[in-house]
């Protein structure tokens, strides 16, 4: 050594980096990815691959050639967005749908605001919602994919929530609908229901959640407050009229509530910083989701709920600050 390095303190750094955090999220997503590939087969692989490739490629191109900076794909955030977007798409979606989703997620939602950390809305969800509104037919058709395991009946034509909504609209009671379709909670836990790639297995998502908690990547407050709110809200309505309102467990296990609560609502950039703020945020998501499910025209409302609550984050951050030391 000839020149002494001089810098202000501290002189050491925790090993945590943006990249390591994102890598942990990718690892936490793996169980869901594996389950969706097992159950939906090659079509799930195509959706995953195209979504990830387009997201990463787009971020690379935009940072290098549009913003003329060093590429930021090394932080793996585009990879995470790609995977989450894929898990939000039906496995039968064609590759170009994934590409449009990637353009909206990375190009519009993330990079126009200045890249990672600057966006107001969660990129993957914005991408999904855009697709849902633009291509409702593709986005709500689930049948036709042949999985590596499980029979043809493993995949039904619509999501349980869609079936219920449809049935209720036709004037049926829930018991009649259930009798027709034979849902069981066991199926929902172990990926035996129709739904977008990420929705089908609650167990896989819970494994990911536990991993994220153990690695201290996220704090549990947002996820738990979403789930508790959904359960309580639906519980009240279910107790009032069990023939018209679905029960809490059904609501928790279907329609991406788990996927959203674990992976999308907890996105650092678009969620509040403080625990108190996180609880308000989670409760908001839960209530909005259930309002849409019970009274809205869409069968499920998790994505909309998260987007709506994303927009309140700056406000929540402003009012929910950590208690400062020595200030009563």
């Amino acid at each position: 050594m000839n020149k002494l390095l001089v810098s202000p303190s501290p002189h050491i750094h925790s090993k945590t980096s943006t990249r390591s955090l994102m890598l942990d999220v990718v690892i936490a997503l793996l169980p869901s990815v594996i389950v969706s590939v097992l159950f939906y087969g090659w079509s799930a692989v195509v959706v995953l691959a195209s979504s990830v490739v387009f997201c990463v490629l787009l971020e690379y191109l935009i940072t290098r050639y549009l913003m003329k900076q060093a590429s930021t794909i090394g932080d793996l955030s585009a990879l995470v967005t790609g995977i989450i977007l894929a898990l939000n798409l039906p496995p039968t979606a064609p590759w170009w749908v994934a590409m449009i989703g990637a353009v909206v997620a990375i190009g519009v939602t993330k990079m126009t605001f200045g890249g990672l950390g600057q966006n107001v809305f969660n990129p993957a969800i914005t991408g999904r919602v855009f697709l849902l509104i633009s291509f409702p037919a593709i986005m709500t058709t689930w049948g036709g994919a042949k999985g590596f395991i499980g029979g043809a009946d493993a995949v039904s034509g619509a999501t349980p929530l869609g079936i219920v909504k449809e049935g209720l609209a036709q004037g049926m009671t829930l018991d009649q609908i259930y009798a027709m379709h034979d849902f069981s909670y066991g199926q929902m836990l172990f990926a035996n229901i129709g739904g977008s790639a990420g929705e089908i297995s609650a167990i896989a998502i819970i494994i990911g959640f536990i991993y994220l908690l153990a690695r201290k990547v996220i704090r549990p407050y947002i996820t738990l407050s979403v789930l508790v709110t959904v359960a309580v809200f639906s519980g009240i309505f279910w107790l009032i009229d069990p023939t018209q309102y679905t029960d809490p467990l059904f609501n928790l296990l279907t329609g991406g509530v788990l996927l959203g609560a674990v992976f999308m609502a907890t996105d650092y950039v678009t969620s509040p910083m403080s625990d108190k703020g996180g609880i308000i945020f989670g409760v908001g998501i839960g209530i909005i989701t259930m309002l849409i499910r019970y009274f809205g025209s869409y069968p499920e409302g998790m994505s909309f709920a998260i987007l709506i609550m994303n927009s309140t984050v700056p406000l929540i951050n402003k009012f929910c600050k950590q208690k400062k030391f020595g200030r009563a």
Partner: peptide, 17 residues
């Protein structure tokens, strides 16, 4: 051990808070 890594965007993770 000590060289600082290049600065990137704040991801608002709240770890500093």
């Amino acid at each position: 051990q000590t060289r600082r890594k290049p600065e990137s965007n704040c991801i608002r993770c709240g770890r500093c808070v």
